[in-house]
Design a protein around this nucleic acid. Structure first.
Lengths: 180, 180
DNA sequence: ACCTGAACACCGTTCAAGT
DNA sequence: ACCTGAACACCGTTCAAGT
């Protein structure tokens, strides 16, 4: 006997699913995000999820997008370019596992690939903006790429927050100095 | 009717499995490595694989280890520290997808976590060795970490070989210059 | 429009049983 | 020591059928 929740708005139902997916993702990663399990928790049939998301990867994108928006909500305050980059990297640390998930799924699903492109270019723009005041326009692009790579590489490693911060600081300071 | 291949040495049979796993991994990634599928290809029952590898992750480690050893076989030639790092990064590029797989599985399986620690420390030693001739001993550790992060971060991104090389070159050159 | 129940074709892993 | 067959408890996805 399919219960029909025509009374509840589409947005609310969508929100419920994304929120549940988000929770799973945050504390268990991709392997903890199971459509079957999610439906069970929400008291739905597995197939119900597919009414809202044609694919598990679509759900993944929706959930990760929400997580990311939450992180970006806490806006960087003013400061030098170096401190702003450090702050940025620190915010992204908790996002790194999902970053890798996105990277891996992007090879399998076009939705995820498109999402990854959007996120990366958003980050690059934000970073280039931050750096534009202390790097010449001719070197801005490559410098931004190098700083971004440094950040992602540092976040990839499983080291202490203090160690991470030290390496990032050293790296960013040197990268922001004109080549000798 | 279990065929018993007591005539074939254990090593040969092990080798056969690892080789097949390696093939799948190289051109399809982790999701293409299926114990069931592997057994099918080798004409074995699924359970037969488990006589040699207690877990899919054990098989993963064995296969990735072989892939990595093959890459490291092509030994870096002499040159400046910068060119050697560039060469190194280029070699590792094809390994990057598997690097991420290892990173993700490490959170789930201790075998993979141990393997990751070994590989990372091996790389760090090689890199520190290369850098020791142009970086002071007091800054060697952090510089090596920064260079390694830069490499991993650059490899993470899906950009052209030329772009990658340019960013790496700029980054490494600046990182190897004493801070101002 | 929304949801169910049941099926499909997969997984990784375990285990009693055979040689 | 080595391997099979069959089971277990999962997956993601599809689809006819119901309200």
């Amino acid at each position: 006997v399919p219960r029909n929740r025509a009374d509840v708005s589409r947005e609310e139902k969508l929100d419920e699913i994304v929120e549940a997916a988000r929770d799973r993702l945050v504390d268990g990663g991709y392997s903890a995000l199971s459509v079957a399990d999610l439906a069970r928790q929400l008291g739905l049939a597995q197939a119900a999820i597919y009414w809202y998301f044609p694919t598990k990867d679509h759900l993944l994108v929706a959930a990760v997008d929400r997580i990311l928006k939450d992180i970006l909500e806490r806006k960087p305050r003013r400061g030098t370019a170096v401190t702003r980059v450090l702050w940025f990297a620190e915010q992204l640390h908790e996002f790194q596992d999902l970053r890798l998930t996105i990277r891996e799924r992007a090879a399998r699903a076009e939705v995820v690939a498109a999402f990854e492109r959007d996120v990366v270019s958003l980050f690059r723009v934000m970073l280039a903006n931050s750096l534009s005041e202390c790097v010449g326009p001719d070197q801005l692009d490559d410098t931004a790429d190098a700083v971004m790579a440094l950040c992602e590489g540092v976040l990839l490693r499983d080291i202490s927050a203090a160690h991470r911060r030290r390496v990032l600081k050293l790296g960013v300071e040197r990268l922001l100095v004109p080549a000798s």
